[in-house]
Amino acid sequence: MKNQWKHRIVCLALGTATLVFGGCRSTVRVTDSAESGTQQLLMNSSADAVICSFDFTLLADRRCYLDTTGLGKANSGYLTYRLREQMGSFGVRLSETRDDAEVIVEAGLAAYGTDSRRDTVGITDVDRLPDLYLCVDDVQYGVAKLSLFAREKETGLVIWHSGAMRADSYQDIRKVLGSGPYYTGTIQHSGTRVGH
Rank of each mutant, 00 (worst) to 15 (best):
Y182I: 09
T186W: 01
A150V: 12
I173N: 03
G191H: 02
S147L: 06
I173S: 11
Y183C: 03
P181W: 05
V158C: 09
S169V: 08
V194D: 05
Y182P: 00
A167G: 05
T186N: 03
T184D: 07
M165Y: 03
E154M: 08
H196M: 07
K153L: 04
S162F: 02
Q188C: 02
H161G: 13
T184F: 07
G195L: 05
G195V: 05
L157A: 14
I173W: 02
F149C: 10
L157Q: 15
F149Q: 14
R174Y: 00
E154P: 01
R174Q: 13
S147N: 12
S190V: 09
F149T: 09
I159C: 13
S190W: 06
E152A: 04
S162I: 10
P181M: 05
I173V: 15
V176L: 14
V194P: 01
G191P: 01
L157Y: 08
P181A: 05
G195D: 06
S169A: 15
H196A: 09
R174H: 00
I187R: 01
E152I: 09
S147Q: 14
Y182L: 06
P181Q: 06
T192I: 03
D168A: 10
R193N: 06
G195A: 06
T155S: 15
G156L: 09
E152P: 07
G195K: 06
H161M: 08
Q188N: 04
D168Y: 13
S162K: 10
R174T: 14
Q188Y: 02
T186G: 04
A167S: 15
A150F: 04
G195I: 05
S190E: 13
I173F: 01
S162G: 14
G178A: 08
G195R: 07
G178S: 07
R151P: 06
Q188R: 08
I173A: 09
A164M: 13
W160N: 12
E154L: 05
P181G: 04
